[in-house]
Simulated assay, not measured.
Amino acid sequence: MPLSEYEQRVLEQMERQLTSDDPRLANTLTQRGRRPFGRYVIAGVGAALGLLLLVLGAAGGRAWLGVVGFVVMFAAVAFAFADPHRGRRSGPQGVVQEDGAVRQPRPARPAKPAKHGFMSRLEDRWERRRGESGR
């Protein structure tokens, strides 16, 4: 069932609001990242090996082998979908003080974004209605 014109306009407004409020999140959601093909091959082999261990454990009456097979399958799928750059940190690793000790840098606090846009107008209207009703 196709969306009506009104629903399409509201969806476009929400998309523009998301892009203006959190451009990093919007970029992440719209980005079509390519993962290395080798990760999928390794994960496929691991999942097949885990399935084989699971079946052999169930057929042979060895529950521990089935559990190991399930863990191997789960680890293979997690490896396939994990971010390969997750462990790498960029930027300063610490601050060297005068006495030579290294201290972790404090994360900068982001400034509160100014309220504007579709969602903030809805929130303002809601607050005005609550104030008019006396609650």
Results as ranks from 00 to 15, higher is better:
M1Q: 11
M1I: 04
M1T: 08
P2N: 15
P2E: 13
P2G: 14
E7D: 09
V10C: 04
E12D: 15
R16Y: 00
L18R: 11
S20R: 13
S20W: 01
D21P: 00
D22F: 04
P23H: 08
N27L: 05
N27C: 01
T28D: 06
T28C: 02
T30C: 03
F37N: 11
G38N: 06
Y40D: 13
V41E: 04
V41Q: 06
I42S: 05
I42R: 07
A43N: 05
G46I: 03
A47L: 13
A47Y: 05
A48C: 12
L49T: 14
G50P: 05
L51Y: 03
L51S: 09
L51W: 04
L52T: 12
L52S: 09
L54Y: 03
V55M: 08
L56T: 05
G57W: 07
G57C: 10
G57M: 11
G57S: 13
A58L: 14
A58P: 00
A59H: 06
A59F: 07
G60V: 07
G61P: 06
R62W: 06
R62H: 12
A63N: 08
A63I: 09
W64I: 11
L65P: 00
L65H: 01
G66F: 00
V68M: 12
V68D: 01
V68Q: 02
F70C: 10
V71S: 13
V71N: 05
V72T: 15
V72Y: 02
V72C: 12
A76C: 09
V77G: 04
A78G: 07
A78K: 04
F79P: 00
F79Y: 15
A80I: 03
P84A: 05
P84T: 02
P84E: 02
H85N: 13
R89I: 09
R89N: 10
G91Y: 05
Q93E: 10
G94M: 04
G94L: 03
G94S: 10
V96C: 05
Q97R: 15
D99C: 08
G100V: 05
A101N: 11
V102L: 15
R103C: 07
P105V: 08
A108Q: 15
A108G: 12
R109G: 14
P113Q: 09
A114Y: 02
A114W: 01
K115L: 12
K115I: 01
F118P: 05
F118R: 09
M119S: 11
S120I: 01
S120R: 12
R121K: 14
E123P: 00
D124R: 14
R125I: 06
R125H: 08
E127R: 13
R128A: 15
R128D: 13
R129H: 09
G131C: 02
E132G: 05
G134I: 10
